[in-house]
Simulated assay, not measured.
Amino acid sequence: MDSATLGTGYSCTLTAGFSKWRNPSQIPRSIQFVRHQQNKRNLLFKSLKCVLISHPSLAAVRLRSLASEFTGLTEPIDRVKRLLHYAELLPPFDESARVPANRVTGCTAEVWLDVRLDEFGGTRFAVDSDSEITKGFCSCLIRVLDGAAPEEVLKMKAEDLMEMNVGVGLGVRAHSRVNAWHNILTSMQKRTEALVAERERRAEPQTQVVSG
């Protein structure tokens, strides 16, 4: 059976032959069986198409692109330079958000993180640090996760970030800098989870107490 036959569910010969039977019940059982089998093939074909056109998450696509960018740099110094380049691209941090509640703990450098949900349900992040290397890390995280759905943010793992290989060759402070990935990501996820929980709480119908 050629592709035209598969796409329509009937061969040209069968389709032309159906016209002499106005009542579908009058169609011979052998032809009904052929049509049934062709319809089953069409259903399978459509199901396969649905599977093939499924897309990965926005954050996963961004991470893959960024990881490819860093792993293409074989020299550690070049990866450090790329981090510093991303540090320069980090958007300015709102000074009003530089408060103790937005401080990320566990990092050697000072890091501030502000998180909110936009009107479309996306997660928006603003980050800053007093360390240029850490700012580079923050900028990469912003590049991957800013605007992503909360579910995507919560599914991200620190191990996924290791594909970028930026911690290798950074010297004696490499371990603390790699930990910055984990600490900042964990803070992003905790605050995202809290915002989602707060949004769901507000969406719940309020029980009214009627006094007698």
Rank of each mutant, 00 (worst) to 15 (best):
S129F: 05
S129L: 07
S131C: 14
S131M: 11
E132H: 11
E132W: 01
I133N: 04
I133Q: 07
T134D: 00
T134K: 04
T134S: 06
T134V: 15
K135F: 07
K135P: 00
K135I: 01
K135G: 15
G136M: 03
G136I: 14
F137V: 15
C138G: 14
S139W: 00
S139H: 10
S139P: 08
S139G: 01
C140G: 06
L141Y: 09
L141K: 12
L141E: 13
I142F: 06
R143W: 02
V144A: 09
V144K: 04
V144Y: 02
L145Q: 07
L145M: 10
L145D: 05
L145R: 05
D146N: 15
D146Y: 03
G147T: 05
A148R: 10
A148T: 06
A149S: 13
A149Q: 14
A149P: 04
P150K: 10
P150D: 07
P150V: 11
P150N: 03
P150Q: 09
P150C: 13
P150S: 08
E151G: 06
E152M: 03
E152K: 03
E152F: 06
E152L: 01
E152I: 04
E152A: 07
V153D: 00
V153E: 00
L154N: 01
L154F: 02
K155A: 13
M156F: 00
M156W: 06
A158H: 11
E159A: 15
E159C: 08
L161T: 09
L161V: 01
L161K: 02
M162D: 08
M162S: 12
M164T: 01
N165Q: 01
N165M: 00
V166E: 03
V166W: 07
G167A: 14
G167N: 08
G167S: 14
V168D: 09
V168N: 13
G169V: 00
G169R: 04
G169I: 01
G169L: 03
G169M: 03
L170D: 09
G171Q: 04
G171T: 07
R173E: 09
R173P: 00
R173Y: 12
R173W: 11
A174T: 03
A174Q: 02
H175Y: 02
H175V: 13
H175Q: 11
H175I: 11
S176E: 10
R177G: 05
V178H: 02
V178R: 06
N179W: 10
N179A: 04
N179P: 00
A180M: 08
A180Q: 09
W181L: 15
H182Y: 08
N183A: 03
N183F: 05
I184P: 03
I184L: 04
L185V: 09
L185M: 13
T186Y: 08
S187Q: 15
S187A: 15
S187K: 14
Q189W: 03
Q189R: 04
K190L: 10
K190V: 06
R191S: 09
T192E: 07
T192I: 02
E193K: 15
A194E: 05
L195I: 10
V196H: 09
A197K: 12
E198T: 13
E198N: 07
R199W: 00
E200F: 05
E200C: 01
E200H: 08
R201V: 12
R201S: 11
R202K: 15
A203N: 06
A203E: 10
E204R: 15
E204K: 15
E204Q: 13
E204D: 07
P205L: 12
P205W: 10
Q206M: 02
Q206Y: 02
T207D: 12
T207E: 15
Q208A: 05
